[in-house]
Amino acid sequence: MTDTPATDEIAAAEHHHGAIARRVDALHRRVDHLPGGRTALRVLVACVGGAFILAGAAMLVLPGPGWLTIFLGLAILGTEFSFARRINDWLRTQVRRMWAWWKARRGKDGAVSGA
């Protein structure tokens, strides 16, 4: 695929995203047949996703995987809310840019220290 573990992991996650999207679509089809079902689902997703984000924010100063929990909360919110999907897309782009910068920097440092 590619030569870096981070880009391999991102590509694998994007591949699995199709399976998750199909499951979310199937859930939407089932919920749409219930009166008030979609609204209830959106409220549930907002509560669960928001709880993850708040817990992640607390874990930034307490022991625990704060950023990972925040990103998971955004992913949960992204199943129902477009703003969270846009934030996730932006973050994915930033991670790729940072990884490319880090890889280029390590390449320069390795060439200098190896001389």
Rank of each mutant, 00 (worst) to 15 (best):
residue 2 T to W: 12
residue 3 D to V: 02
residue 3 D to Q: 00
residue 6 A to R: 13
residue 8 D to G: 10
residue 9 E to D: 01
residue 10 I to C: 01
residue 10 I to N: 03
residue 11 A to S: 02
residue 12 A to N: 02
residue 15 H to Q: 12
residue 17 H to M: 06
residue 17 H to A: 15
residue 22 R to S: 12
residue 22 R to A: 13
residue 23 R to P: 00
residue 24 V to I: 07
residue 30 R to Q: 05
residue 31 V to G: 02
residue 32 D to C: 04
residue 34 L to H: 07
residue 35 P to V: 01
residue 35 P to L: 11
residue 38 R to N: 10
residue 39 T to F: 10
residue 40 A to P: 13
residue 40 A to C: 15
residue 41 L to C: 06
residue 43 V to E: 08
residue 45 V to S: 03
residue 46 A to L: 15
residue 46 A to G: 15
residue 47 C to H: 14
residue 48 V to N: 01
residue 49 G to E: 03
residue 49 G to V: 02
residue 50 G to E: 07
residue 52 F to V: 01
residue 53 I to A: 08
residue 54 L to W: 04
residue 54 L to N: 12
residue 56 G to H: 01
residue 57 A to G: 02
residue 58 A to H: 02
residue 59 M to C: 15
residue 59 M to N: 10
residue 65 P to S: 12
residue 66 G to A: 03
residue 69 T to W: 05
residue 70 I to S: 04
residue 71 F to M: 14
residue 72 L to R: 06
residue 72 L to T: 13
residue 72 L to G: 14
residue 72 L to D: 08
residue 75 A to V: 09
residue 77 L to H: 02
residue 78 G to K: 07
residue 78 G to C: 08
residue 78 G to E: 09
residue 80 E to I: 01
residue 82 S to N: 14
residue 83 F to N: 06
residue 85 R to P: 01
residue 89 D to F: 04
residue 92 R to A: 11
residue 98 M to V: 09
residue 100 A to E: 08
residue 102 W to F: 07
residue 102 W to E: 05
residue 103 K to A: 14
residue 104 A to D: 06
residue 106 R to V: 02
residue 106 R to K: 03
residue 108 K to W: 13
residue 110 G to L: 10
